[in-house]
Design a protein around this nucleic acid. Structure first.
Lengths: 149, 149
DNA sequence: AACATACATTTGTATATACAATAGTTGTAT
DNA sequence: ATACAACTATTGTATATACAAATGTATGTT
């Protein structure tokens, strides 16, 4: 299926616009698939991302700045994102004793438990989205992606 | 710059996840660049998209359904998107005489005028984002993008 | 100690989006 | 003609996000 058909337009789109539009279209496909996989757990992609970062810390706490630095999609408001996870009991937050400007955020046991389940669903969704691509093609994509500013 | 560096993580990310994360990262780059180009005009990417569709109609009106069908990123609420453009005077909307369930949306003279200016800015932004890619590489990307479900 | 500056997070506000519910219109079958 | 289902857009509500301003804390300078 080509871009013109998807957008139901007669005229041919120039290569550059076409590439970018195609990019955005595939991005929609990907985020919809991943979000749908997380839907049963009631968390957004961003919240999932935060939980994964926290698990990667191995007990070490993370500050908001750390989270922001490592998030795939940077947020202007990580505070409220963590609030949501707090409400669900998946993270805990306390003021950092050594520097009281900072907060220490950790994933809870419940967070780890639910995250393990999410991992399975996410992995399935990833496989599904990428099922028509070979390893070589993915490598190729990664190389091409590096050329974007 | 590789993905691991961008996300400041030590562990190597598996190819599939890596590809998808890289995709999302580049998507952020693209949408930020394009949105920034539209910022001076006070319209969002979606609003710009609607204006372009309307211009492509050549005087023929479009219904909300038509807009939705042709938008790059489908919206659950095109009504309010058009509301914004109405307020700015870039489009006009009236009830379709032959089928009063539908509305007829057209771009105005002011809309066409401002859109012409936006085109220049957008084209510059596109060139900028894609400056490191050859035509062949873009073609390659389009082929790979077609492999996504 | 007093002050200015930088830092880290939180809050306020406006806008955007998703999803569900509603309202009005049309076509069709009876 | 009437009832009913399908269609199209609008509205309501909750949540998400962007951006700017405010708060509280720490650090450096005099």
């Amino acid at each position: 299926m080509n871009v013109e058909d998807i957008l139901k337009t007669e005229k041919e789109i120039p290569l550059k616009s076409r590439t970018l539009i195609h990019f955005l279209l595939v991005n929609n496909t990907i985020t919809e698939a991943l979000s749908a996989a997380l839907k049963p757990y009631g968390v957004s992609l961003q919240q999932f991302n935060v939980l994964r970062i926290l698990r990667g810390q191995n007990k070490k706490p993370a500050s908001l700045a750390t989270l922001n630095e490592r998030m795939v999609t940077k947020m202007s408001n990580t505070t409220r994102l963590v609030d949501k996870l707090l409400l669900k009991g998946y993270v805990e937050r306390k003021v950092c004793p050594s520097n009281r400007r900072k907060v220490e955020i950790r994933i809870t046991k419940e967070g780890l438990l639910i995250l393990k389940k999410m991992d399975t669903s996410m992995s399935e969704a990833e496989d599904n989205v990428l099922q028509n691509l070979s390893d070589q093609e993915m490598e190729q994509l990664n190389i091409l992606f590096n050329k974007f500013e």
